[in-house]
């Protein structure tokens, strides 16, 4: 095995193992912390694929902001009483069925995927010379402008929704 394969093997095993750790923890704060380790491993995987920008964003957005929000919510709500409640425990057969269907689907889809597709115009050398951020920015604002704007519109709707929900209504008291 080459060094690359060794690193990839470690990352694959670690990411799977860490995901299992996340969903088996009783204490929700511990689960979030395992998820933090998991996100850092995913960032290393991105780095390993020469996607340094994605790796940094993965850490800043997911590990730095979203997980802190998770922790914030978990700490404010006392989740301990909720975890033993029956309606959260009785759903596991449905979970098993959905997981089985999803696994089957992904097996079918993955068999269709060509592992070594024809190379596009963005070769490793070109991305390295232009820099990750510039390449992503250029593609995002030219070729994928419409999906990008749609995504930002959806996020805007979410922000407005949060404000509407959180705002106190003056007339209704």
């Amino acid at each position: 095995m080459t060094a690359h394969q060794l690193i990839f093997a470690y990352l694959a095993i670690a990411i799977t193992g860490l995901s299992v750790m996340v969903i088996t923890r009783r204490n929700p704060v511990h689960a979030v912390l395992w998820m933090l380790v998991l996100f850092v491993h995913i960032a290393i995987l991105y780095l390993f694929l020469n996607a340094e920008f994605l790796a940094a964003i993965q850490i800043i957005i997911y590990a730095g902001a979203i997980l802190v929000l998770f922790l914030f919510v978990i700490m404010l709500l006392d989740v301990k009483d909720v975890e033993m409640e029956r309606r959260f425990l009785g759903l596991w057969p449905a979970g098993v069925v959905i997981t089985a269907i999803l696994t089957l689907l992904s097996v079918i889809v993955l068999r269709e995927i060509d592992v070594f597709p024809p190379l596009g115009q963005f070769s490793i050398e070109r991305i390295r010379s232009e820099g990750n951020i510039m390449t992503i920015g250029r593609v995002l604002y030219t070729r994928h402008l419409l999906p990008f704007e749609i995504a930002s519109l959806i996020l805007l709707v979410a922000i407005i929704g949060a404000v509407v929900l959180a705002k106190k209504r003056k007339g209704v008291e």
Partner: peptide
Amino acid sequence: INIGILYILALSSIGTYNVILAGW
């Protein structure tokens, strides 16, 4: 590295976990 600023921002966001976790 090319993402110097982002790297520092990423590490500083990881660094805040010490306060949050220590307190908890």
